[in-house]
Design a protein around this nucleic acid. Sequence first.
DNA 1: ATGGTTGTTGCACAA
Length: 256
Amino acid sequence: MRVATWNVNSLKARLERVIGWLELAEPDILLMQETKLTDEAAPLMAFSMAGYELAHHGEGRWNGVAIASRVGLADVSLGFEGTGPDAEGARFLAATCAGIRIVSVYAPNGRALDTPFYAAKLDWYDRLIGWLATTSQPSDDLILGGDLNIAPADLDVYDPAAYVGSTHTSAPERERFGRLLKWGLVDAYRLHHPEPGRFTWWDYRAGHFHKGLGMRIDHLMVTRSLATRCVGAEIDRNARKGKLPSDHAPLFIDLA
DNA sequence: ATGGTTGTTGCACAA
C-alpha cells in the first residue's frame, strides 16, 4: 500500500498535474493541502475517473485539505473532532481508508516569530496534539500527514543559519513536533533516509529549486504498527520540475 | 541583492 502527501498549491491550477501523478505513482491514498477550493468546487469527477474517491474540506481562496483514496473512504471528519470547525481555516481532514485512520493537515505557516500568526501556529499544534491524545491510541493504525510547516532538525534545512530567527525551525515549533513523536508517531521518511539535503519544499523565487535550497516541511507520521510495515519512503522531485509546478514535491511511503 | 515567483470569485496579500 502506497500513501502519499502533497501540498498542491491550488488543486484547480494543479488538477492535470495531480491526476497525471496519480497515474504515474499509483498511490492508494493521497493527502493534499492548499487545495484553495470550496467543497462545491472540489473536482470529484476527475478523481473518480482516475479511480479515486475524494473527501474535501475547504473554504476557497486559502487553505483547504483533501484525501483521495482508491481503497475506501469512510468516517470523514472536518476539523479537530469534538472541537468544531477549524477556527483559522480548513486545515484538518480525517478519514478511514483500508482500516487506517488518515489525517491530512495543513499547519499554519506562522509568518514571523513576533506576529500573532506564530502564536496561533503554536496554539494550533497544541490543539492538534490534544485531539490526538483524546481521540486516538498510539497502538492504532494511524497516519498523520501533510504540510506541517516545521523542519524538525537542522539537517532538514539547506542552511540552518539562514533560518535563525525565522519560523519553521524555532525551538517551540520543534518542541511541538517532538511531542508528536513522544506520543508515538514516527517520521516515516527519516526512518529510511538519515541523510541531509532531502527537501519537500523550495521557494519559487530566485531559482531556489535548481540550487537545491529547500526545506523538509511535509511529513508522513505513522504509528509504530505502521512504521514496522514501512518498507520505503521517497520524495518525488520530478513533480517539482517543469512548467507551473507546486512549490512542494509529493512525499510517499510504501507499507508492506 | 530587503532581490525573486506563484496563487487567488485577486486588483493586495499570503506563502
